[in-house]
Simulated scan of single mutants.
Amino acid sequence: MADRKLRWEFLGRPTPFPFKILDKLGQKAFAKEHGADVPATLAVFDAAEIAADKSALRSHLARCSSDFVLKPVHGYQNKQAFAVRGGAHDLLRNKSFDVNAAADVIAADDEFSSYMVEELLADERGDAAPSRLPVDFKFWCFGPTIAHVTIMVSRERRGEGYTVAVADCDESFTPQPTWCALPTSAESGLVELVPLPLKPLCWDHMVATARRLGAAVGAFARIDIYATPRGAVFGEFQLLFDLVDWNDRADAAIRTMWRGRDGAG
């Protein structure tokens, strides 16, 4: 894993896939090319445009739906991201969305040069609380083989930190011991283990999508997929990891299943 990260991130060596590792637009295009449904892209713009005229962000958002995600094109870990429901509530911060404050964040950004707006997905059953993010199913894949599924049932802001409710299963939706590391610092995010949610009606579609994308990407990857009213929808690939991303049980399984230089043979 360390060798792969060194080659890809620092040495710029070729990867098994055609997109840049953190490029959300490239990931979506790749997933769509391989038969996956993806969230609609509503706008793309440079941070420099907002720095020059902060009102430009309001103009971009006026042409989008009221349920949207605003984030850097090459972002990670929800940095500088906003998930907005009804044009008014920022789900990531659990407070009212302030377009002027968002413009200030983007204008001052010295890390990400471009931003995108995409649709905020709805949960399949339509019964999720509107103040919560859609449930995120993370498929750990070695090529077409699904080793584990981590389900981010909810993510709630608590003071200066946040709490993530997590459940784990296999591709048959049978409960499994968690692969999550369990931090104890609210700043890094507290993890609560919870029972499995209801099995998605489109579970077979989600599994088939994960297998197909895992085979196509050609490397060990964690693939985010959402259960929506229109079926399985791709979220993103995670291809760079640190050891803090999983616990000892996961580490042992990953070492056992790893094949070749990049994990998928």
Rank of each mutant, 00 (worst) to 15 (best):
M152P: 14
R58P: 05
I50Y: 09
P14K: 09
F30T: 09
V191G: 00
E118H: 03
F220V: 11
L11S: 04
F97Y: 14
L190D: 01
D123N: 11
Q176V: 08
G231Q: 06
R63P: 02
L201R: 10
R222H: 01
V44C: 10
V84G: 02
E49C: 13
D67Q: 03
A227I: 12
V69R: 02
R249Q: 01
G235E: 08
T209S: 01
T209I: 03
C202K: 14
L193D: 03
A52D: 07
P39E: 15
F234T: 05
V153W: 05
A129V: 13
L120Y: 00
A43W: 01
F241Y: 06
R155I: 15
R7N: 04
D90I: 06
A29H: 14
R158A: 09
A250K: 06
G231C: 03
Y76T: 11
A216Y: 13
C180G: 06
V164I: 04
P130D: 11
T15Y: 06
K138M: 10
E124M: 07
R249Y: 07
Y226G: 13
L133N: 07
T209V: 01
T209F: 00
R4T: 13
R249A: 02
R255S: 04
K79Y: 09
I223M: 06
W203H: 15
P183T: 04
D53I: 14
A88P: 04
R93Y: 08
F10S: 02
D245P: 01
A29V: 14
P16F: 05
A264I: 04
A221P: 05
C141W: 08
